[in-house]
């Protein structure tokens, strides 16, 4: 994945809660066997409504999505992360994320930023008032900055390091192949196999 240190860009306010992954990318898009081509599936049902925020030309080219709480709930489909990235998003800000979505995001280098409800609301209001306003999401300092607004966010050190280095999780785990083999030798004998 691409490394993430700091990102500055314009933001789209998505004033909805419980944006489940079925909305982010409806199931009909999940039949593909490749990892690309999901940008057109992003919010595809909602985008049919001309009034939907992503159809507003003032937000064209924005790279930060600022959503209501409980973003990415529901299905484990990583396609939701791929669709957001391929559409051009680098960051999603919300007061709460679905656990699996948040995990999937950090595997792919899409940064999920948790901020308090009132801060999310202030950012949404600010970019509604001035869609050209630029937001900086700084993973190094763990800060979101927009004009006078400076808000700290939490992310564990390990995930932050991995994102900043753009490291492949599998490669990191395989460095401990000996530990895995040792563990396997000690597993209970009755545990089932599929063969």
């Amino acid at each position: 994945m691409d490394a993430f240190t700091t990102h500055t860009g314009r933001a789209v306010p998505l004033r909805r809660s419980n944006v489940d992954t079925d909305q982010i990318i409806p199931a009909v898009w999940l039949k593909q066997v490749s990892r690309t081509g999901f940008e057109n599936g992003l919010f595809s049902a909602w985008r049919e409504d001309p009034a939907f925020v992503l159809n507003n030309p003032v937000y064209e080219g924005a790279s930060i999505l600022v959503s209501g709480p409980d973003f990415g709930t529901g299905s484990s489909r990583e396609h939701a992360v791929w669709a957001l990235q391929q559409y051009g998003f680098r960051v999603v800000i919300s007061a709460r994320f679905g656990d699996i979505f948040r995990n999937n995001s950090t595997k792919m280098g899409l940064l999920p930023v948790v901020l308090p409800d009132d801060v999310v609301e202030r950012i949404q209001a600010a970019v509604e008032a001035d869609p050209a306003a630029e937001l900086t999401v700084d993973l190094v300092e763990r800060q979101v900055r927009l004009g006078d607004l400076v808000s700290e966010f939490e992310i564990d050190d390990y995930t932050r390091w991995r994102l900043m280095e753009g490291l492949d999780d599998i490669g990191l785990t395989l460095r401990h192949a000996d530990d895995i083999a040792k563990y396997e030798n000690g597993r209970q004998q009755w545990l089932p196999t599929t063969v």
Binding site: S76, E78, I100, N103, N104, K107, D169, I170, L174, I180
Partner: peptide, 30 residues
């Protein structure tokens, strides 16, 4: 790679859904 993997918890197993990157991780490393 399905969020309803939680079903298997009915047996006292620790069971949870994962995304495709994690599916690859489990395939490669168990």
């Amino acid at each position: 790679g399905d969020s309803h993997t939680s079903t298997h918890g009915a047996f006292g197993a620790l069971a949870f859904g994962i995304g495709t990157s994690e599916v690859e991780h489990v395939l490669a490393t168990q």
